[in-house]
Computed example of a mutant assay.
Amino acid sequence: MQCDRMRFAVIADIHGNARALRAVLADMDALGVAEAVNLGDFFSGPLDADETAALLAERNYPSIRGNHDRYLITQAREDMGLSDGAAFDLLSETHLDWIRSLPETLSFHGDVFLCHGTPTSDQTYWLERVNPDGSLRRATLSEIEAEAKGIGASLILCAHTHLPRIVHLSDGRLIVNPGSVGCPAYDDDHPVYHCVETGTPNASYAIVEKTPDAWTVTFRSIPYASTEASALAAKNVRAGWARALATGWISEASD
């Protein structure tokens, strides 16, 4: 179905943070936004994967798998990282079956394309690049457009880096990353060790609207009980997560 006008929310990278998700859902409700899509990485983290699953089940938004969702259904428990393992221990087989049922990419309303990382990889950054020294840079337009070949949708949604971004392609298509609902900073060793930091503990999501003329995008930065989430991470012996949730920073260099 194609619509001349539609409005919906875009959420991603909740990472088991039920407190942040509740705040985002409340904000959506207050704004009268009933429709949403979810770009994956629902549960991985030392927080409330089971509560997050219950909240998502109530809404039943169109959703795709992220890389950490894939790890939950393809890796043995003993091979999982700390965050994936913590989430796995709180999830039921019903929750895992739901992840198994989800696609890696999705077309929404005929003119919107959903992916987690890029259209061909759930663990590759699209709008950013990691330099060999671990620093982060914005991808060039040519690098971004190379990954967008063959996608006819006028709005392309991606996630994975947790950074709210909007990029206009030279042919008029739009790529939007809504940021992360529940994890404002993290470190990773793929492809080399690096940190991604938003500098705010707030929950992030986006509202997009298609009018007869163009797409409009509104990024929402929502305060919530982030100190409680940080305390839970600390209780679960995850100091980096506790720091990220409390401040939006994770590296010592940010001091």
Results as ranks from 00 to 15, higher is better:
148 A>P: 07
122 D>Y: 00
83 S>H: 14
198 T>A: 01
93 E>P: 03
129 R>K: 15
177 N>M: 02
152 G>I: 04
160 H>Q: 01
127 L>W: 00
1 M>H: 10
148 A>M: 15
121 S>N: 14
152 G>D: 14
176 V>H: 03
141 L>E: 06
134 G>W: 04
91 L>F: 05
181 V>S: 04
179 G>E: 00
15 H>T: 11
69 D>M: 04
54 A>Q: 14
53 A>G: 13
202 N>P: 02
23 A>V: 11
143 E>Y: 09
245 L>R: 00
28 M>P: 03
160 H>W: 07
28 M>D: 13
252 E>R: 10
17 N>L: 09
144 I>Y: 04
42 F>C: 06
232 L>K: 14
149 K>H: 07
227 T>W: 03
182 G>D: 09
180 S>P: 07
33 V>G: 04
136 L>W: 06
175 I>R: 01
165 R>N: 01
163 L>H: 06
50 D>K: 14
189 D>Q: 12
190 H>M: 08
129 R>V: 06
103 P>A: 13
175 I>D: 00
27 D>L: 13
124 T>L: 06
252 E>K: 13
48 D>C: 08
75 Q>N: 11
112 V>A: 11
24 V>G: 02
70 R>D: 14
36 A>C: 15
242 A>R: 01
124 T>S: 14
134 G>A: 03
121 S>D: 15
97 D>P: 04
213 D>P: 01
63 S>D: 08
83 S>W: 12
12 A>N: 12
222 I>E: 10
242 A>I: 09
114 L>K: 02
166 I>C: 10
236 N>I: 03
234 A>M: 07
35 E>P: 02
153 A>D: 13
247 T>Q: 09
180 S>G: 11
65 R>G: 06
209 E>A: 10
84 D>F: 02
95 H>K: 07
175 I>A: 01
52 T>W: 02
23 A>R: 03
198 T>E: 02
89 D>R: 13
234 A>F: 05
193 Y>G: 03
220 R>N: 14
218 T>E: 15
3 C>E: 09
36 A>P: 07
122 D>A: 08
57 A>V: 13
114 L>S: 01
32 G>P: 10
101 S>A: 12
235 K>E: 14
151 I>M: 12
146 A>S: 15
147 E>L: 05
211 T>Y: 08
